[in-house]
Amino acid sequence: MKSVERARSHDDTGLPLVVRDSIDYLQAHGLKSTQIYRAEPDRIKLQQLRKLYTDRGPTFPYHWDVPVACAMLNELPDSILTQELHGQFEQATAIAEPQREATMLALIGKLPSCNYSLVGWLVRHFESVVANEQVNTL
Rank of each mutant, 00 (worst) to 15 (best):
K2E: 03
A94M: 11
M104R: 04
A92N: 03
R56L: 15
L138K: 13
I23N: 02
L73I: 00
V19K: 01
Q35F: 07
N74T: 07
E75C: 08
L138A: 11
H86I: 02
E5A: 12
P77H: 08
T82K: 02
E5L: 11
I23R: 00
G109D: 04
I95A: 04
C114F: 10
I44W: 09
I108M: 09
L85M: 07
P41V: 01
N132Y: 09
Q47M: 12
I36G: 05
D55L: 14
V135H: 09
R20C: 04
V4H: 04
Y62I: 10
P41E: 05
G14Y: 02
P98T: 03
T34G: 07
L17D: 08
P41H: 08
T137L: 13
R124W: 10
L26K: 02
E40A: 14
A92F: 05
R43T: 12
H86M: 12
F60P: 00
V129M: 01
L81Y: 10
Q134D: 14
T93P: 05
A71Q: 12
A69Y: 02
R56M: 15
L52K: 15
E84D: 13
T34S: 14
Q48Y: 06
Y37M: 11
L49S: 00
M1H: 10
H10A: 15
A7I: 00
D78W: 01
V130F: 09
L76V: 05
Q47W: 06
R124Q: 15
V135R: 10
I36W: 00
V68M: 03
L118I: 04
A96N: 10
K32C: 11
G120E: 06
L46M: 04
T34N: 09
K51W: 09
I44E: 15
R56N: 15
E5T: 10
R43L: 14
E5M: 07
Y116W: 15
M104G: 00
E97I: 07
M1W: 05
L49T: 03
V123D: 07
D12A: 13
V19C: 06
P112L: 10
S33R: 00
I36R: 02
R50G: 02
V130R: 12
T137I: 03
Y25A: 01
E97T: 09
D78Q: 02
I44R: 13
E75K: 06
P67I: 00
I108G: 01
G87A: 06
I36F: 01
Q35M: 12
D11K: 09
T13H: 05
I95R: 01
R8D: 04
A71E: 11
A102E: 15
